[in-house]
């Protein structure tokens, strides 16, 4: 059975159920419809749809991840834009392209930094974004420079190994 057929069967079997579930939980037909479609779109290229033990649990998990990502993206965009407005002079206008690239980078970085402790995150951002010298960071946190470097290296390792996947 071709992948396309498997997907169609999967879709017709579960689409309405997922939609009804989301309508119940979200109490909004519009959002429920959007999330339902986005969820199935994500699964279009997935293998082994027919072999899922608990397709409905899988669907709700996928839908939930989607919603988490949407919320996070909105938070990042909204917060970044607010700070940008405060930081920049009045005449400054970010081109839409620059802004789009910046927001994409922000989301990617936030996702990668998720795997890192809050302290490590702060140390890394002080170094990479504020360009604070290691000695100063060490003093700020009351730790040794060697320890600071360990934190920085760990962050790089964690974030880059995710990239490689």
């Amino acid at each position: 059975m071709s992948n396309a057929n498997t997907f169609e069967i999967f879709y017709s079997t579960h689409q309405h159920w997922l939609y009804a579930y989301l309508v119940r939980k979200l109490r909004c037909t519009h959002q429920a419809a959007d999330i339902t479609q986005d969820t199935f779109e994500k699964l279009l290229t997935k293998d082994n749809l027919a072999e899922l033990h608990q397709p409905r649990a899988f669907l709700t998990t996928t839908a939930t991840h989607l919603m988490i990502n949407i919320i996070r993206r909105r938070q990042l965009e909204s917060t970044y834009l607010q700070y940008l407005q405060l930081t920049k002079e009045e005449q400054y206008v970010e081109s839409p392209e620059q802004l789009a690239i910046a927001l994409e980078s922000l989301v990617a970085i936030a996702n990668l930094l998720d795997s890192v402790s809050p302290k490590a995150r702060e140390i890394f951002l002080m170094s990479r974004l504020d360009n604070t010298p290691h000695a100063e960071i060490a003093q700020h946190f009351g730790i040794s420079v060697v320890r600071v470097r360990q934190y920085l290296t760990q962050v790089l390792i964690k974030c880059c190994s995710f990239q490689q996947l």
């Binding site: 990042l76 917060t79 970044y80 930081t87 620059q98 974004l129 790089l156």
Partner: peptide, 24 residues
Amino acid sequence: QFWRKFDHLDSVSAKKTLLKTQST
């Protein structure tokens, strides 16, 4: 590749944003 991602950002706004938003 990871390092370069930060080039596109306004440093001050980005740092505040990344420290403020909730983890997934």
